[in-house]
Structures are given as structure tokens and as C-alpha cells.
């Protein structure tokens, strides 16, 4: 029974959402689901956040290596929760937005979270460079095609590409790099994208069916548990 009920719920809800697309009075079911999901996600945070706290407290109590950093994480977590939920340091009264300019919550975003996010994101520049270098060294045909296409598109987005190939006569203008880049984006790239998208669409249909029919069911855990 413990397993039958969840399987039935999955089957029922899945089928209902598919059919709702064809039944006008049920059209908004998809939106309702999003609403449910958003609310469930907040409740679930108690499990996730609770786990975060437990992991770091365990590390602290057992004096595991780097336990000092666990203290930092816990303090940071508690600080934002208190400042944000009780709107401490907020200009104006309790009704003002938690993200109001000048609030402690917003300031910790501006000067702590935001620089951290942007820097982590910016590291990509280095990783793109190292990945390109590796692809460059991989001497197989696929990697070469990938690199050539990447190179043309990259040059095509810079003034460099135009300067490099402006000597090509107008009648063969397609071979000027910016034009070639546009052609690649609009033709072979589009073809590849379509094949991938159609494949994904069918893959999703098949996997979703396996889930709805209960063929795929490990996420529900085990009866004996």
C-alpha cells in the first residue's frame, strides 16, 4: 500500500495534466501546479536548511578539519535569516520591502553576495580558455569541426573578422567571416539544434510515460524502508 498510493498519485496527476491541455475548463491546471510547487518548495526548505545546519554543527562538535569555516557558514546563515525575516536594519516600518535600498538585507546582497556571484561567474573566462586549449589539442575530426565553427562565430562577432576578410570580392561575400558566421548560425547550427530538440521532445515523452506508468519508480524509495 505504501508504494501503491504514491504510484497512483503520479499516474493520476500526470494524466490529468496531459489532458488539461485539451480541456478548456482545465487549462489553468498547469499554473495551479506551479503555485503548489512554489509552496511545497518553501516547506521543503526546512529539510534542506535543517540539513545544512546539522552538517555544519556536526563538523563543529566533532572538530573535523576546517570546522572553523563551518562556524562562518552558520553565522552567515543565521545573520541573513534574522535580518531578513525580522527586517532588522530596514529603513521605514515593518511593511517596507525587505529588499529596500539601505536595508541590511539588501546591503549584504550588494556587498557580499553580489561580488561573490559575479566573481564566480567571471571565473568562466579562464575556464573557457582552458577548455578551448584542450579542444585545440584533441586531434580528432569532431573536435576540429567544433573548433573551426567556434572560431568563425567568435571572429564574426568582432570587428577583427571583417578586417581580416574584407578583401574578398562582393560576389563571394558569403566567405567574408561575418557573413559566414551568420550563415553558420542560420543553417547548419539550426539543423543541429532542430535534431537535438526533436530528440529531446521524444525522449521526454518516453521518460515521462515511464514515470507516469510506474516503470521508473526508484525516486519513491523502497517498500521495505
Amino acid at each position: 500500500m505504501r508504494r501503491q498510493i504514491p504510484l497512483f498519485i503520479t499516474f493520476f496527476v500526470g494524466t490529468l495534466l496531459i489532458l488539461s491541455v485539451f480541456i478548456p475548463p482545465m487549462e489553468t491546471l498547469g499554473e495551479d501546479f506551479t503555485l503548489f510547487f512554489d509552496i511545497i518548495a518553501v516547506f521543503a526548505f526546512f529539510l534542506g536548511g535543517g540539513n545544512l545546519v546539522r552538517v555544519h554543527i556536526t563538523k563543529l562538535i566533532k572538530r573535523k578539519p576546517d570546522w572553523g569555516f563551518s562556524v562562518v557558514t552558520l553565522v552567515g546563515f543565521a545573520f541573513v535569516l534574522i535580518v531578513g525575516l525580522f527586517k532588522i536594519g530596514n529603513p521605514g516600518d515593518i511593511a517596507s520591502s525587505v529588499t529596500a535600498e539601505g536595508s541590511w538585507f539588501q546591503e549584504s546582497f550588494n556587498y557580499i553576495l553580489n561580488p561573490l556571484q559575479s566573481t564566480m561567474y567571471a571565473l568562466l573566462a579562464f575556464f573557457v580558455a582552458s577548455a578551448s586549449y584542450r579542444a585545440f589539442r584533441a586531434k580528432n575530426r569532431e573536435a576540429t569541426i567544433l573548433l573551426v565553427a567556434a572560431f568563425v562565430i567568435l571572429l564574426g562577432r568582432t570587428p577583427f573578422g571583417m578586417a581580416l576578410t574584407s578583401w574578398i570580392p562582393e560576389s563571394l561575400s558569403i566567405f567574408q567571416i561575418p557573413n559566414l558566421a551568420i550563415w553558420i548560425m542560420n543553417s547548419p547550427n539550426l539543423a543541429g539544434q532542430r535534431a537535438i530538440m526533436i530528440g529531446i521532445g521524444l525522449g521526454v515523452v518516453s521518460m515521462s510515460l515511464r514515470l507516469i506508468l510506474g516503470i521508473e519508480r526508484t525516486y519513491l524509495g523502497d517498500d521495505r524502508a
Binding site: A41, A44, L47, T218, Y219, D222, R224, A225
Partner: peptide
């Protein structure tokens, strides 16, 4: 990076270990 994924992943691994 998601609490619900944590829950579902635990169920998944537990079931597989059991099997």
C-alpha cells in the same frame, strides 16, 4: 542545490541500496 532534490535523491539511493 534544492531541498526537494535532496529528499528525492535520498529515497532513490536508499531504494537502490536496498535492492
Amino acid at each position: 542545490s534544492r531541498s526537494l532534490v535532496m529528499t528525492a535523491a535520498r529515497e532513490t539511493i536508499k531504494a537502490s541500496f536496498q535492492t
